[in-house]
Amino acid sequence: MASGATPSPPLLKAEGLTLAFGSRVILRDLSFSVRRGSVFAVMGGSGCGKSTVMRAMIGLLRPAAGTVAVDGEDYWGATAERRAEIGRRFGVLFQNGALWSAMSVAENVALPLQMFTDLGADDVDALVRLKLSLVGMEAAGERMPAELSGGMRKRAGLARALALDPDLLFFDEPSAGLDPVTSKRLDDLILELRDGLGATVVIVSHELPSLFAICDDGVFLDAETRTAIAHGSPRALRDGCGHPTVRAFMERSRQDHHGQGGSP
């Protein structure tokens, strides 16, 4: 984590990625790179394969073609063991938190630490308390996931994603299902954590307000052509992208912002 940040090759680089379920191609020839320390958005409408891209990056779906490189190392070309090792640098927040329901929130956060470090029980406890306090959940450590609200479940999932001090955080639809205030709070938290942890963040989302607020780079996927049709930060795409699909997507928010009562 935060050491002297030297300008270096991208932390994550996808090249010529083709993703398919069996013979059904979801995305083809997708390339993008994620700069160290950036908040990178994978955008696009529903069904464009955003989450599938994330699955390929976190090791859940082997690409049909192309490579994903983490710190210059071919992720899918590595052995399964090495891949798991690289994967320990990732923290993943799934859409609904994906907390393990048989364990309390604190146990959820503790499990990665118990599995992958030699820390003693007291040290694990101290780290768990820290992670929970970072997401404002210290008071809820003993609760079971079923007793949490949607927002709390996400924050608990975030604490678990932070357990191993990851370099790279993945968020699948972080604001889905949250009210605007909670969603805003989560956005701020993501930025705070990015700055504090020096982590790089990849966000899969179609929630425009969040995207504009926190992302400084990104790629726009299109369901029709099944590939990336634009690169750049969400704000830059909103203000200066000529592609009609991207325009339509981004304009939506502009109308919402400006035309409270008048827009169709």
Binding site: S133, G136, E138, A139
Partner: peptide, 11 residues
């Protein structure tokens, strides 16, 4: 950030 989080005490 952690300080803010600890604002609320365990219930």
């Amino acid at each position: 950030l952690a300080e803010v989080g600890t604002g609320q005490k365990p219930e």
